[in-house]
Design a protein around this nucleic acid. Structure first.
Lengths: 211, 211
DNA sequence: AGTGCGTGCAAGCACCCACTTGCTTGCAGG
DNA sequence: CCTGCAAGCAAGTGGGTGCTTGCACGCACT
């Protein structure tokens, strides 16, 4: 089976592409990184463009944008868990996403695919907050669309740029999800409006502000 | 004077670089775009790297991160005006910033310079909100650092990615600053806490939510 | 033993890249 | 008129880069 070699090439392509981008990812570099002759690369994928497309597709297939469970009893904990998952996923693909988005002018379809996951994530959050609002736990006057858009920008910003401009992200990585969610919930008017107050103890650790 | 030619080359370099990035910005393309022989490019700047460095420096010199005036009487209007200015500036350099940040792994110093402006912008906003808080107009329990960080991420996200993934930014461009600021102010607990309530009329147009 | 098949290897092709050299042209200042 | 300088032009250099070709090796299957 050439399946193992195929995977090794794709992994190498991901590695090189995420560091050097499309133009910088030469077939020689990829082949070398994969420990494979350059010719097999062309024999397996046809061309450099086809290889990188296959690689992006395989990477975005593991997109798995998590959805928020429907449990309204503890919104902060619920969204924080989801947020942590989302951040982890984005951070794992940060280099590849950054390059792909930067080259969106030249290869728009790739960039679209890269962001598809975030669309569903965003929609999932909007839905959850609307349900909160309908249940009377969120401010009916809040601008949910804007708040969610800003929240998603914050997720991308943290995942993509923290390692480049760390000073712009004062919260430590571990505490970030809880504090993002807390600030987000304030912006949509969900404060201590939990139906069962005893549940707050569960997230007490995350609700301390450090300043 | 070779000054006019120098400027024309730099302008062309900016144009080409913002579309194709460092690797894609070949000296031939730049010279062609500038309407100049490729040789003069090397005679004027020495090398491609030096040329692009000079170009980035000249572009970031016009960085002009606006500062928020000290007027506390109408925070929403104050910050909204500042936010609109910031967005306009970022949007004007969106392509160049995107490329420079994406290539930060290879040319870190350039990326640092590109973000320097945003640091002072962020600091300026933190300062303003702290003054609001000290004056009793903001929630003393709010997590200002996180809120500002998220707000700045939202600014970058809007400026850099709106044209690529428009569906992630539901607010129209014109209305965006006001709605971002409104949502931000909610997150730090500034609501209708204006000292002089009659001043609210001034921002009435921006406080309607559309949804 | 024979037949594919997948892979490695060496070489090469045509083109692009940053950069150089040598020469010509035009134009301003003494 | 002469000199110097800035710019254009033509050609070339050494090295990359995507991709191809031809051939040899090893390994499974029958």
């Amino acid at each position: 089976m050439s399946d193992e070699i195929r995977n090794r090439i794709i992994a190498a392509a991901a590695q090189v592409y995420s560091q050097l981008g499309f133009r910088g990812a030469t077939t020689r570099l990829i082949a070398n990184e994969a420990g494979v002759n350059e010719v097999t690369l062309f024999r397996t994928f046809g061309s450099k463009a086809d290889l990188l497309e296959a690689m992006l597709q395989s990477r975005m297939a593991a997109n798995s944008a998590p959805t928020i469970s429907g449990d309204l009893s503890d919104p902060a904990a619920e969204i924080t868990a989801w947020c942590a998952q989302l951040l982890e996923h984005l951070r794992g693909h940060s280099h590849i996403i950054r390059k792909t988005i930067a080259e969106a002018d030249e290869r728009p379809e790739a960039a679209c695919a890269a962001c598809e996951g975030s669309n569903s994530a965003s929609a999932s959050l909007v839905l959850y907050v609307e349900r909160l609002r309908n249940a009377g736990f969120a401010d009916p006057e809040a601008d949910v669309g804007t708040a969610v858009s800003m929240f998603m920008s914050a997720m991308f910003g943290d995942a993509l740029y923290r390692e480049i401009i760390p000073q712009a992200f004062p919260q430590p990585v571990a505490a970030a999800p809880a504090r993002y969610v807390q600030t987000f919930l304030r912006s949509v008017g969900v404060r201590a409006s939990l139906p069962d107050r005893s549940r707050q103890a569960k997230v007490a650790g995350t609700r301390r502000r450090s300043r």
